[in-house]
Structure formats: C-alpha cells, structure tokens
Design a protein around this nucleic acid. Sequence first.
DNA 1: CAGTGGTCTAGACCACGGT
DNA 2: CCGTGGTCTAGACCACTGG
Lengths: 233, 233
Amino acid sequence: MPASSRTGFQEVRDEVLQRIQDRVWAQGALLPTELELAEEFGCARATVNRALRELADRGIIDRKRKSGTRVAVTPVKQAKLEIAVVRQQVEEMNAAYRYALVAQTEKASPDWLTAQIGLPQETPVLHLKCMHYADNRPYQFEERWISTAAVPQVRQANFSDVGPNEWLLAEVPFSDAEITLSAEPADPTTAGFLDTAPGTALFRMERATWFQGQPLTFVRMTFHPGYRMTTRY
Amino acid sequence: MPASSRTGFQEVRDEVLQRIQDRVWAQGALLPTELELAEEFGCARATVNRALRELADRGIIDRKRKSGTRVAVTPVKQAKLEIAVVRQQVEEMNAAYRYALVAQTEKASPDWLTAQIGLPQETPVLHLKCMHYADNRPYQFEERWISTAAVPQVRQANFSDVGPNEWLLAEVPFSDAEITLSAEPADPTTAGFLDTAPGTALFRMERATWFQGQPLTFVRMTFHPGYRMTTRY
DNA sequence: CAGTGGTCTAGACCACGGT
DNA sequence: CCGTGGTCTAGACCACTGG
C-alpha cells in the first residue's frame, strides 16, 4: 500500500471543494448523489455524508432531500468574528494590560436601555465605566449596564481589580447575545478617556446578552482611534 | 411509549448544553465519557460523539484524547458575520437598489496595494469606483482593485450595469479572504459621494481575496453615516 | 410514489497523549 | 500501556419533497 491511508471524510471534503473551485461543478450544478460519490471514493455513504455536511455548513453547497446537492449560487460569505476578552487581546499584542474602574453607580434603567434589551420598566441597573490600557496607552473605553435583578450577586462584586467583562464570564452563564458594530464620532467624555479630539472617528462594538430570554447586561465598547478588527475565512 | 421519539443527537446536544448553562457541569469540569453518556441517554456512542463534536465546534467544550471532555473555561465567543452582496442587503431593507459606476482606470498597482495583498511589483490592476444607493440615498462607496493578470477576463467585463462584486462572485472562484473592519473619518471625496461632511465617522470594511495563494482583488467599502452591522450568536 | 438526504446503530480499529 | 476521543463501516429506517 502507498503511504497515504484510505479515503477519509477530509479527503472527500477537500476533493469536492477542489472540484467546485475548479469549476468542475459550476455554480448551481447538481452533484452526484451520496451513494455515487461513495462508490467513486471507495468509502461508506456516511463518510461522504459527513464531508458534504461540512461543506453545507460552510455555505458552499445546498442540500435538499429528493432534489439532491447543488453548488451554492451565492457562496455564503460568513466570517467568524472571534470575540476575545480585552485583556487577552492586549496581551496577544505583547503589550502590558492595565485596567481601571472609572465610575460605578446604581440607578433605574434609562428608557433607551429598557427598550433596547427588553428590561421591565424601572428596573435597577448597575452602571459601570471602565478603561483598558495597552502599554499605558488608551485601548478601550467600556461602558456597561448590568441588571441587578437578573444578576443579584453583582452587588457583592468588586470591580476595582477585575473588569466586569471577566467577572461576568466567570460568574454568569448566558445563552444569547447580539453584537452591533458601528463607527461613531467621539463625544467629549469619550474623547477625554481615549486621549483624542472630540469628533474623532471611533470603532464601537455593542453587545446585549440574555440568559434564557432574560436580559442580563449591555456593554458599549469604544476603541482607540485607528483600531482595526480583522478576520479571515 | 410517550409521544417523543427516541434520543437523537440534537436532544443530547441540547441537554448537555443545558447542563453546562445551569452549571451542573461548571467551567473546566470534566464531563462523562462518550460511552457513559451513551448509556445514560440510551443511544449509540456515535450519536453522543456527534452531539459533543458540534458543541466543540462552537467552542463550548474542549475535547482531548485520553484527558476527556471539559467545559471550556473561556467560552469562545465567535459570531458569524454574514457578508451579503450589497444589492441583497439593500433589498432586504425593502429599499430600491441602484448602482452606478463612477470611474474605471487601469494602471500599475500602487505600492501600498502591492504590499497589502502580495502582488508582484508593477502588476497592472483595474481600479474601479462605484456607488450603491438605497432609495436613492447613498448607501455605500466602493473602491476596488482587480489584478488583471490573475483575472484577465475582467478586461472584457462591462461594469456599467452590474457591480464588480456580483460580477466577480459569478465569474471568479476564490478560496481565501481577509476582512478588516474599522472606523475612518470621511475624506473630501468620499464625503461628497456619501453626501456628508468631511471628517464624519464612517464604517469601513476592507476585503482582500486570494485564489489558491494568488491575489485577486482588494475592495474598500465605506458606508453611509449611521450604518450599523449586527449579528447574533 | 419513489429518490435523496438525515440520522441512528453496533461494532471496529486507529491515534493521541497521560500515567 | 491503555483510556479516551476520532473515524469508518455496512446496513437500516425515516422524513421530506418533487414528479
């Protein structure tokens, strides 16, 4: 036997992908059935199934019972955004991470927040402002609201040393989140924290988080000027 | 027998996820082996395997041979960014889509581009400027460079009616891409196209594309003021 | 109705990596 | 060494859907 082992699902997956990229099977074209491919590759149908399922998950092909498998007309471009904790991001740049708590108050949820994440009216929320630094240069200004009804233990937490992001990750399970990315001009306060001029274009990421339908927290992260978020696919 | 059918991989997957969210298995905790779970759920090991594999793909659990399966300490927050064609985006908002070609020139690749996507020096590139409108209001300003060496048929293409984005998707296969998101102040030209003031904070997405290692195209998409990109997970 | 993918099974062997 | 996950198989039945 040659060194290469027998046909595995990865080989099938890669070979099919290759044929699609090389236009052996053009866009919208019908692929052979799983059974036919299994015969061609000399493996079980389950192996072909797994290979094709992975390609379908990536949006490369469309599968329908009875109709068969087709090359997707619009290859779904889905990029994975890796959302890391700020400290990790900074440390991966080989920069020294520093965190500072700026302000902490508890009050009734403002109306815009109530509406945005679906809180009951007059719910008390803990409002935090924090700064994250990389090598002592401003990296991210974080403004966060936490529902004290949904996360009662937050009252005992001390955010002087550990940021609310890491605390919540460790303490509170969550099931769903919604992320919004945008570009915003720096307001005077944010500009001050990020050591830039008001009006500067800043990259912002907002995230609302729920646990089994119950709103937990909303965070607005505004990054230093020039910040870029990159991903591959 | 109760109405619910027999145990499938989705039930196993959801039940395991539930137990993790409910902290039945805390962060870093060791889960039972596949064999044990298969016994508990009354199904084959392959079924448990598929359930756990999906959770591992989502970053919920970490699996290692011999060590076993553990709840991930830092649940990898990976959001899928769906990158749709501009026309689709606009039409999904129930707005009328309009496209216009602004300029088209062919010249040697500028140095910054050569470096950015790894083109050989002095490579000729086709440079396009386009506008995309939603209900006749500026939606996106697109600036694109296409390697005419890698995509020779681009010389015959007519970009008066169909945007380069859609043309490339239909004509040219590609295998890899790198996406960068940022916030930029509007330069005078862009501000003019997007009908806003210079310096306005604008959301920008850049994408470089390769086919089997060969650079094909680079596109810079700058969106109208107030644009927001949203995703869930 | 019949073709195609979707899933499950019971068993098997392999590969990695702690002990 | 040997436990655990990774994968493959041959066969089976089911579910959806186009004709």
